[in-house]
Amino acid sequence: MNIFRLFGDLSHLAAIIILLLKIWKSRSCAGISGKSQILFAIVFTTRYLDLLTSFISLYNTSMKMIYIGCSYATVYLIYAKFRATYDGNHDSFRVEFLIVPVGGLAVLINHDFSLLEILWTFSIYLESVAILPQLFMISKTGEAETITTHYLFCQGLYRALYLINWIWRFYFEGFFDMIAIVAGVVQTILYCDFFYLYVTKVLKGKKLSLPA
């Protein structure tokens, strides 16, 4: 464990908690892409199946349980409890255009042709594009609630910190995982446009609105 990975995990945890609390307290999921949240639930489910097969540490196991629990709770709130506030018209990204290519790539490019490994690889590739429905929805509505931008910032920051963690691990431990690194770079690049808007607008107290 290093400081970058720790703060990456904490940033990721913060994002998940911010979103869950925002929906729960405002009793509304307006502006939130349910499709992205379903993709994240799939990402955690396919990645953390090793919860059933291996124990790494209390930290590792508890964080995985929290991630899975919160992501399913968020999906439940969006599609069941606060379904009336779900903005289905603007959440129109065709996720099958993500899942099919990512699934195919995971079967073609992986470290080991075993079920758990292919599911892990699928989860890594899927996570790199899972935010696209959310970013697409914001581009369609032309704006985002400030709390949603904080959620997105933490979500984007987490993988950016992981990139530094991988540099650290390569330099000090000689470990690297090309699949995780390439997907992490793609994932972080997808946030760059948002990061620019977040720093130039939200941090100056303005609302995040895109030129419609």
């Binding site: 990975r5 995990d9 990721h12 090793d50 291996s54 790494i56 540490s57 590792n60 964080m63 995985k64 991630y67 470290h111 490994e117 892990w120 992981y162 963690n165 991988w166 691990r169 390569f170 000689g174 470990f175 690297f176 995982d177 090309m178 699949i179 995780a180």
Partner: peptide, 10 residues
């Protein structure tokens, strides 16, 4: 350095 997976990572 091998291409070991980071299965200890989240």
């Amino acid at each position: 350095p091998g291409k070991l997976n980071h299965k200890d990572e989240l």
